[in-house]
Design a protein around this nucleic acid. Structure first.
Lengths: 242, 242
DNA sequence: CCTCTCCACTTGTTTATACAAGTTCTGTAC
DNA sequence: GTACAGAACTTGTATAAACAAGTGGAGAGG
């Protein structure tokens, strides 16, 4: 049950596009028409439209109307850059079963080298977790997660095997808001070959990221090493005038 | 000279953050304070703030204030996912000189296999351009660009050597608005080794993208193959409630 | 037939206002 | 001292209104 008025409009337009009621190239009804239909002001309609614009569904054109530019993808990529999605959430979109194996789970103190890499302050207590993610029988991701203990108290091996984000959000009531990520390709190390089913590949797609909660505290540093053919990052960019 | 009122506010806040007047963790003055200072309404301030939030500079917190979460990066990445930037624009942020070598420039007709890959309609007239991009003396990007001739008339080898985007925007008056990209890592082909200075690498970071203009027409399909150590994609994601 | 003007429509920007809801601190009552 | 209530702030949502600016078609005039 949404408490906001723009959410239903957002979902209505989105599903009209995804169900191909409006196809790529079509123009939507005007903002005033939507405002009348939903019994709200034009501003509220515009808010829903701007969200869908940021997601690459719509392209508003001054004086002409709002055009649909969404095209359904043939091959859905496992991960979509531009969203913050846990492995469990992403895997649920694929058909294969997702499992997680814990390699390491320990508590450490942040020293200078860790601080330099992660951005945590020296002396902080941290959880250090290494996990391998499987899709079906194939090991596809080698994850290293470092969490700020003061913000994620009670994290356990048990939880890490399931879903850390579900624990943080549902049990601790934390709100995850912003994430900063960097994607590169790197040569596979011996440890990568040991842990991942790389096949004939000798390189991995690496994503390092910092995650912030709603209090503005960076509570997680993550490094994920992906088997190249099992991952693809997709995103939509909008060219800014400013 | 900006005609909009939120742009100066956007830039003022942004530069206050980048000059470290407000550091990561600090709270900005309240929206009402900014409104009074700039002689505008709160809505206009909120608009500037929401832009900077989307860029990962700010984190507004209900009831508390707007917190700065921007941290200056030590190593600036060449490309930033989340923006649409040409090679020339990106290179100008680095110290090395950018040059371009044209490998192929021809006109082709879209057949079924090209249509399937690019999304252009069969029978369309297209420019097919292959270019190698150099930073200093190193060949770092192998670009394949396919343009819709009907939207990009007059494109020439001469222009391709300089900046295609500058031609499209300044000369043709086209506005580039939305871009959809997919990032993967792939094994380097013989042609990659031939054209790029890959050193000991035998893989490349591949970006394929579709670019739309302000009329909602997809006018470009691009595939870029990058030398792995010369490129890094950075982005900021915001977790949506909806 | 062509061209130009103007009108009716579209989205873009900004204001002012109101209230909802979350946070923090202060002061009172116990 | 502690706990609770409330005031004074903050950001979040929504409305109504006005005007700017771009687009496209209708219609008048040549």
């Amino acid at each position: 049950m949404p408490q906001s008025k723009y959410e239903p409009i957002y979902h209505a337009i989105k599903s009209d596009i995804e169900s191909s009621k409006y196809k790529s190239g079509d123009f939507l009804p005007s903002e005033n028409e939507y405002a009348a239909r939903f019994g709200c002001s034009r501003n509220t309609v515009r808010r829903a439209i701007s969200l869908l614009t940021a997601e690459g569904y719509l392209l508003p054109q001054h004086g002409r109307g709002v055009q649909v530019i969404f095209r359904p993808e043939k091959e859905r990529s496992l991960f979509t850059i531009g969203g913050i999605e846990s492995f469990a959430e992403a895997a649920s979109r694929s058909s294969r079963k997702a499992t997680t194996k814990i390699i390491t789970f320990k508590e450490i103190k942040c020293d200078q080298s860790i601080s330099l890499m992660t951005g945590f302050d020296i002396g902080e207590d941290l959880y250090y977790i290494e996990r391998v993610r499987y899709l079906g029988k194939q090991a596809v991701i080698y994850d290293t997660n470092i969490f700020l203990i003061s913000e994620t108290k009670g994290l356990s091996e048990e939880i890490a095997r399931d879903s850390i984000y579900r624990y943080l959000e549902d049990t601790l009531g934390m709100t995850i808001t912003t994430s900063r990520r960097r994607v590169t390709a790197e040569r596979a190390t011996e440890r990568d070959h040991e842990l991942l089913d790389l096949g004939h590949f000798d390189f991995v797609l690496t994503v390092v990221g910092q995650v912030f909660n709603s209090r503005g505290v960076m509570f997680e540093y993550t490094r994920s090493r992906h088997v190249p053919d099992q991952v693809c990052f997709a995103e939509t960019a909008i060219r800014q005038k400013v």
